[in-house]
Computed example of a mutant assay.
Amino acid sequence: MSLFALLDINNTLVNIPLGDGYAMSWIEAFGTVFGLLCIWFASQEKTINYLFGLLNVTLFAVIFFQIQLYGLLLLQLFFFCANIYGWYAWTRPNAQGETLEVRWLSKQKLIATAAVSVISITWLTIYIDAFFFSLASFTVDGLNLLGTNLASPVLEPDAFPFWDATMTVLSVVAQVLMTRKYVENWILWVVINVISVGIYATQGVYAMSAQYAILMFIAANGTREWARSAKRNDDKTLTQTAAA
Protein backbone atom coordinates (compact mmCIF):
# COMPACT_ATOMS: atom_id res chain seq x y z
CA MET A 1 0.00 0.00 0.00
CA SER A 2 1.42 3.40 -0.98
CA LEU A 3 1.90 6.29 1.44
CA PHE A 4 -0.75 8.34 -0.36
CA ALA A 5 -3.24 5.49 0.03
CA LEU A 6 -2.52 5.30 3.77
CA LEU A 7 -3.11 9.04 4.10
CA ASP A 8 -6.48 8.91 2.30
CA ILE A 9 -9.37 9.38 4.75
CA ASN A 10 -11.53 7.19 2.47
CA ASN A 11 -9.18 4.20 2.74
CA THR A 12 -11.04 2.14 5.36
CA LEU A 13 -9.12 -0.08 7.77
CA VAL A 14 -12.09 -1.48 9.68
CA ASN A 15 -15.83 -0.99 9.99
CA ILE A 16 -16.77 -0.56 13.64
CA PRO A 17 -20.30 -1.76 14.54
CA LEU A 18 -21.27 1.29 16.57
CA GLY A 19 -24.49 3.21 15.94
CA ASP A 20 -25.11 3.16 12.19
CA GLY A 21 -21.60 1.81 11.66
CA TYR A 22 -18.31 3.69 11.58
CA ALA A 23 -15.66 3.26 8.88
CA MET A 24 -12.30 3.97 10.49
CA SER A 25 -9.57 4.86 8.00
CA TRP A 26 -5.92 3.85 8.25
CA ILE A 27 -4.81 7.43 8.87
CA GLU A 28 -7.38 7.92 11.64
CA ALA A 29 -6.36 4.62 13.26
CA PHE A 30 -2.65 5.49 13.22
CA GLY A 31 -3.36 9.04 14.41
CA THR A 32 -5.50 7.73 17.27
CA VAL A 33 -2.90 5.16 18.36
CA PHE A 34 -0.15 7.80 18.29
CA GLY A 35 -2.40 10.14 20.30
CA LEU A 36 -3.06 7.49 22.95
CA LEU A 37 0.66 6.67 23.18
CA CYS A 38 1.46 10.38 23.50
CA ILE A 39 -0.95 10.87 26.40
CA TRP A 40 0.13 7.64 28.13
CA PHE A 41 3.86 8.43 27.98
CA ALA A 42 3.17 12.01 29.08
CA SER A 43 1.29 10.67 32.12
CA GLN A 44 4.43 8.67 32.93
CA GLU A 45 6.57 11.81 32.46
CA LYS A 46 8.42 10.27 29.48
CA THR A 47 9.81 12.77 26.98
CA ILE A 48 9.16 10.37 24.08
CA ASN A 49 5.49 11.44 24.36
CA TYR A 50 6.37 14.45 22.20
CA LEU A 51 7.48 12.23 19.31
CA PHE A 52 4.10 10.51 19.28
CA GLY A 53 2.40 13.88 19.78
CA LEU A 54 4.06 15.27 16.66
CA LEU A 55 2.98 12.22 14.65
CA ASN A 56 -0.57 12.51 16.01
CA VAL A 57 -1.10 16.19 15.18
CA THR A 58 0.52 15.79 11.75
CA LEU A 59 -1.83 12.96 10.77
CA PHE A 60 -4.86 14.75 12.18
CA ALA A 61 -3.88 17.89 10.27
CA VAL A 62 -3.97 15.80 7.08
CA ILE A 63 -7.41 14.46 8.08
CA PHE A 64 -8.80 17.93 8.78
CA PHE A 65 -7.41 19.15 5.46
CA GLN A 66 -9.19 16.36 3.60
CA ILE A 67 -12.55 16.89 5.35
CA GLN A 68 -12.20 20.68 5.01
CA LEU A 69 -12.11 21.60 8.70
CA TYR A 70 -9.54 24.33 8.22
CA GLY A 71 -9.96 25.93 11.66
CA LEU A 72 -9.05 22.63 13.31
CA LEU A 73 -6.23 22.24 10.80
CA LEU A 74 -4.77 25.53 11.99
CA LEU A 75 -5.19 24.43 15.61
CA GLN A 76 -3.02 21.38 14.84
CA LEU A 77 -0.26 23.80 13.82
CA PHE A 78 -0.38 25.27 17.34
CA PHE A 79 -0.20 21.79 18.88
CA PHE A 80 2.72 20.91 16.58
CA CYS A 81 4.67 23.95 17.77
CA ALA A 82 3.68 23.26 21.40
CA ASN A 83 5.01 19.71 21.11
CA ILE A 84 8.34 20.94 19.77
CA TYR A 85 8.60 23.52 22.57
CA GLY A 86 7.57 20.95 25.19
CA TRP A 87 10.25 18.53 24.01
CA TYR A 88 12.81 21.34 24.31
CA ALA A 89 11.54 22.54 27.71
CA TRP A 90 11.51 19.04 29.21
CA THR A 91 15.09 18.26 28.17
CA ARG A 92 16.85 21.66 28.52
CA PRO A 93 18.86 21.89 31.77
CA ASN A 94 18.85 25.13 33.75
CA ALA A 95 21.89 26.97 35.10
CA GLN A 96 22.22 24.34 37.84
CA GLY A 97 22.15 21.50 35.31
CA GLU A 98 18.65 20.41 36.38
CA THR A 99 15.76 19.71 34.04
CA LEU A 100 12.17 20.88 34.52
CA GLU A 101 10.36 19.21 37.44
CA VAL A 102 6.68 18.44 37.95
CA ARG A 103 4.99 20.94 40.25
CA TRP A 104 1.72 22.69 41.02
CA LEU A 105 0.89 26.19 39.83
CA SER A 106 1.49 28.93 42.37
CA LYS A 107 -1.62 30.67 43.71
CA GLN A 108 -0.94 33.77 41.59
CA LYS A 109 -0.42 31.75 38.38
CA LEU A 110 -3.51 29.65 39.10
CA ILE A 111 -5.70 32.75 39.49
CA ALA A 112 -4.24 34.31 36.33
CA THR A 113 -4.71 31.09 34.34
CA ALA A 114 -8.31 30.73 35.54
CA ALA A 115 -9.11 34.37 34.71
CA VAL A 116 -7.65 34.13 31.20
CA SER A 117 -9.52 30.86 30.60
CA VAL A 118 -12.90 32.25 31.72
CA ILE A 119 -12.50 35.42 29.63
CA SER A 120 -11.37 33.44 26.57
CA ILE A 121 -14.21 30.90 26.86
CA THR A 122 -16.77 33.70 27.21
CA TRP A 123 -15.39 35.57 24.20
CA LEU A 124 -15.12 32.46 22.03
CA THR A 125 -18.64 31.28 22.96
CA ILE A 126 -20.04 34.58 21.66
CA TYR A 127 -17.91 34.79 18.52
CA ILE A 128 -17.13 31.13 17.83
CA ASP A 129 -18.74 30.96 14.38
CA ALA A 130 -17.06 34.16 13.15
CA PHE A 131 -13.75 33.12 14.76
CA PHE A 132 -13.54 29.68 13.18
CA PHE A 133 -14.80 30.95 9.83
CA SER A 134 -11.98 33.52 9.88
CA LEU A 135 -9.48 30.79 10.82
CA ALA A 136 -10.75 28.56 8.04
CA SER A 137 -10.63 31.37 5.48
CA PHE A 138 -7.13 32.36 6.61
CA THR A 139 -5.95 28.76 6.28
CA VAL A 140 -7.52 28.34 2.83
CA ASP A 141 -5.99 31.60 1.61
CA GLY A 142 -2.59 30.49 2.90
CA LEU A 143 -2.86 27.08 1.27
CA ASN A 144 -4.01 28.63 -2.00
CA LEU A 145 -0.82 30.68 -2.05
CA LEU A 146 0.93 27.33 -2.27
CA GLY A 147 -1.17 26.39 -5.30
CA THR A 148 -3.78 24.11 -3.72
CA ASN A 149 -6.67 25.97 -5.41
CA LEU A 150 -9.19 25.26 -2.62
CA ALA A 151 -12.71 26.64 -2.65
CA SER A 152 -13.83 28.99 0.12
CA PRO A 153 -15.15 26.93 3.07
CA VAL A 154 -18.86 26.82 3.88
CA LEU A 155 -19.34 26.32 7.63
CA GLU A 156 -22.50 25.50 9.53
CA PRO A 157 -23.26 27.28 12.84
CA ASP A 158 -21.68 25.56 15.84
CA ALA A 159 -24.03 23.03 17.44
CA PHE A 160 -22.61 23.46 20.96
CA PRO A 161 -20.91 26.89 21.08
CA PHE A 162 -20.24 26.99 24.85
CA TRP A 163 -18.93 23.44 25.13
CA ASP A 164 -16.94 23.75 21.91
CA ALA A 165 -15.39 27.01 23.13
CA THR A 166 -14.62 25.43 26.51
CA MET A 167 -12.88 22.43 24.94
CA THR A 168 -10.89 24.61 22.54
CA VAL A 169 -9.66 27.08 25.17
CA LEU A 170 -8.93 24.46 27.83
CA SER A 171 -7.06 22.30 25.28
CA VAL A 172 -4.73 25.18 24.50
CA VAL A 173 -4.26 26.02 28.19
CA ALA A 174 -3.71 22.37 29.14
CA GLN A 175 -1.13 21.90 26.38
CA VAL A 176 0.80 24.97 27.53
CA LEU A 177 0.71 23.79 31.17
CA MET A 178 1.95 20.35 30.12
CA THR A 179 4.99 21.84 28.39
CA ARG A 180 5.88 23.49 31.73
CA LYS A 181 5.14 20.30 33.75
CA TYR A 182 2.30 21.71 35.85
CA VAL A 183 0.04 19.05 37.44
CA GLU A 184 -3.08 21.09 36.64
CA ASN A 185 -2.77 20.22 32.95
CA TRP A 186 -4.09 16.73 33.70
CA ILE A 187 -7.08 18.05 35.63
CA LEU A 188 -7.99 20.14 32.59
CA TRP A 189 -7.57 17.13 30.26
CA VAL A 190 -9.97 15.14 32.46
CA VAL A 191 -12.55 17.95 32.16
CA ILE A 192 -12.00 18.22 28.39
CA ASN A 193 -12.37 14.47 27.89
CA VAL A 194 -15.55 14.26 29.99
CA ILE A 195 -17.11 17.01 27.83
CA SER A 196 -15.85 15.32 24.65
CA VAL A 197 -17.40 11.97 25.58
CA GLY A 198 -20.78 13.64 26.07
CA ILE A 199 -20.62 15.78 22.94
CA TYR A 200 -19.53 12.98 20.60
CA ALA A 201 -22.07 10.53 22.06
CA THR A 202 -24.83 13.13 21.60
CA GLN A 203 -23.77 13.58 17.98
CA GLY A 204 -23.74 9.82 17.40
CA VAL A 205 -19.97 9.59 16.86
CA TYR A 206 -19.57 6.66 19.23
CA ALA A 207 -16.05 5.63 18.20
CA MET A 208 -14.73 9.09 19.07
CA SER A 209 -16.72 9.02 22.31
CA ALA A 210 -15.12 5.70 23.25
CA GLN A 211 -11.66 7.06 22.40
CA TYR A 212 -12.11 10.06 24.68
CA ALA A 213 -13.40 7.80 27.46
CA ILE A 214 -10.05 5.98 27.29
CA LEU A 215 -8.21 9.32 27.27
CA MET A 216 -10.24 10.40 30.31
CA PHE A 217 -8.93 7.45 32.36
CA ILE A 218 -5.37 8.04 31.16
CA ALA A 219 -5.65 11.71 32.16
CA ALA A 220 -7.02 10.73 35.57
CA ASN A 221 -4.03 8.42 36.02
CA GLY A 222 -1.75 11.25 34.86
CA THR A 223 -3.21 13.51 37.55
CA ARG A 224 -2.46 10.89 40.20
CA GLU A 225 1.06 10.16 38.96
CA TRP A 226 2.05 13.80 38.55
CA ALA A 227 0.59 14.76 41.95
CA ARG A 228 2.86 12.12 43.49
CA SER A 229 5.86 13.44 41.53
CA ALA A 230 5.09 17.01 42.62
CA LYS A 231 4.96 15.90 46.28
CA ARG A 232 8.30 14.09 45.95
CA ASN A 233 9.85 17.17 44.35
CA ASP A 234 8.46 19.41 47.11
CA ASP A 235 9.83 17.06 49.78
CA LYS A 236 13.22 17.02 48.07
CA THR A 237 13.29 20.82 47.93
CA LEU A 238 12.38 21.09 51.62
CA THR A 239 15.11 18.58 52.52
CA GLN A 240 17.73 20.46 50.50
CA THR A 241 16.64 23.76 52.05
CA ALA A 242 16.85 22.34 55.58
CA ALA A 243 20.29 20.88 54.88
CA ALA A 244 21.53 24.24 53.60
Rank of each mutant, 00 (worst) to 15 (best):
F4K: 12
L6W: 08
D8W: 00
D8I: 00
D8G: 06
I9R: 15
I9E: 12
I9L: 10
T12D: 11
N15F: 01
Y22C: 02
S25C: 03
W26L: 07
W26T: 08
W26S: 07
W26Q: 06
F30R: 02
V33D: 02
F34Q: 06
F34R: 06
C38R: 10
S43L: 03
S43P: 02
S43N: 07
T47E: 11
T47A: 13
T47W: 09
I48C: 05
N49P: 07
N49T: 10
Y50C: 04
Y50V: 04
G53V: 05
V57W: 00
T58F: 11
A61I: 00
I63G: 08
F64H: 09
F65T: 06
Q66A: 13
L69C: 06
Y70T: 03
G71H: 00
L72S: 12
Q76M: 10
Q76F: 01
L77D: 01
F79T: 03
F79P: 08
F79S: 07
C81H: 02
A82K: 01
A82R: 02
N83W: 04
N83L: 00
I84N: 03
Y85E: 08
W87K: 04
T91H: 12
R92L: 11
G97I: 14
G97T: 12
E98S: 15
E98G: 09
E101Q: 10
V102M: 14
R103V: 05
R103C: 13
L105Y: 07
S106M: 07
K109R: 15
L110M: 12
I111Y: 13
A115K: 05
V116A: 15
V116E: 05
S117G: 08
S120R: 01
S120I: 01
L124G: 04
Y127C: 05
Y127Q: 14
F132S: 05
S134R: 07
A136T: 02
S137D: 14
V140I: 03
V140P: 15
G142A: 04
L143N: 08
L145E: 10
G147H: 09
G147D: 06
G147E: 07
L150M: 14
S152Q: 12
P153T: 00
P153Y: 00
E156N: 12
E156F: 00
P157M: 01
A159F: 04
A159G: 13
A159P: 11
P161N: 05
F162E: 06
W163T: 06
T166W: 10
T168L: 03
T168D: 00
Q175H: 06
V176G: 08
M178G: 10
K181P: 15
N185Q: 11
I187H: 06
I187E: 01
L188T: 05
G198I: 05
Y200F: 15
Y206F: 11
Y212N: 09
A213G: 14
A213Q: 02
A213M: 12
F217W: 13
A219F: 04
A220D: 04
A220M: 11
A220E: 03
N221F: 10
G222M: 08
G222A: 09
W226G: 07
A227Q: 13
R228V: 05
R228Q: 12
R228C: 05
R228K: 15
R232W: 09
R232H: 10
D235I: 02
